[in-house]
Amino acid sequence: MQDRLSAIQLYQPDYNHLVNLPLADQGISAGFPSPADDFLDLSIDLNKELIKHPYATFYGRVRGDSMTGAGLDDGDLLIIDKSLQPQDGKIAVCFIDGEFTVKRIKLETNSLWLMPENKKYKPLKVTEDNEFIIWGVVTCVIKNM
């Protein structure tokens, strides 16, 4: 089954330590450069900024290429919220037949599909024969450049 699914390595965030980083609050120009602020007096904690439900949130690292069309590449770090209701069209981390995978959820009358976003992979229909749970909804992706 591994060739059809993108594996996920899961990590729980460490909320015991605050990490305040400098924030350029005036925005960063994507056009012509603007004068830089001499002092960055504001800070941001990415846990507070990106995680809305701390005790229901995990990080997961994408393994594989089945979701490249959705902008999820091998090695990307996902923020996964277990408290959110899965909905049609949302990207979720699912546990199916003993493996974690990340796919887009497609709900139809009386059926559920796990949809890859790479033409190399086929959609996977979830049936009663599968051991299956939607483990959490992806809320953010963090990429290396």
Rank of each mutant, 00 (worst) to 15 (best):
L18W: 03
L10T: 12
P123N: 08
P86A: 01
P116G: 02
N144D: 06
T57E: 10
N47S: 08
T68N: 12
I142E: 04
M145C: 04
I80D: 08
K52W: 05
I96G: 05
D38Q: 09
I80G: 08
G136S: 05
F39N: 14
Y59D: 07
F100Q: 05
P33V: 01
Y15W: 12
Q2Y: 11
E49A: 15
L46W: 09
D129Q: 15
N118Y: 08
Q85R: 07
Q87T: 11
P116A: 03
K125E: 05
N110P: 08
Y11L: 13
I8V: 15
K90I: 11
L42F: 08
N144G: 06
G98W: 12
D97E: 13
G64S: 07
D45Q: 10
D45G: 07
L72M: 13
D3P: 12
H17R: 13
I28D: 00
M1C: 00
L10Y: 06
A92T: 14
Q9N: 15
A92Y: 03
Y15E: 11
P54T: 01
N47V: 01
I105G: 10
D38W: 07
F39L: 14
F100Y: 15
L112T: 02
L72C: 05
K103C: 10
T57S: 14
A70I: 11
D88S: 08
P22S: 03
Q9A: 14
P33K: 01
L112S: 00
I44P: 07
F32Y: 11
K143L: 09
L114P: 00
A24N: 06
D37H: 07
I8S: 14
D81S: 06
L77M: 15
G64T: 07
L42T: 09
L114K: 01
Q9H: 15
M145Y: 12
L40A: 02
E131S: 09
D129R: 14
D41P: 03
D76Q: 04
L42R: 10
T109C: 04
K143V: 10
M145A: 08
C94H: 07
R4L: 04
A70W: 04
A36P: 00
S34M: 09
D25T: 09
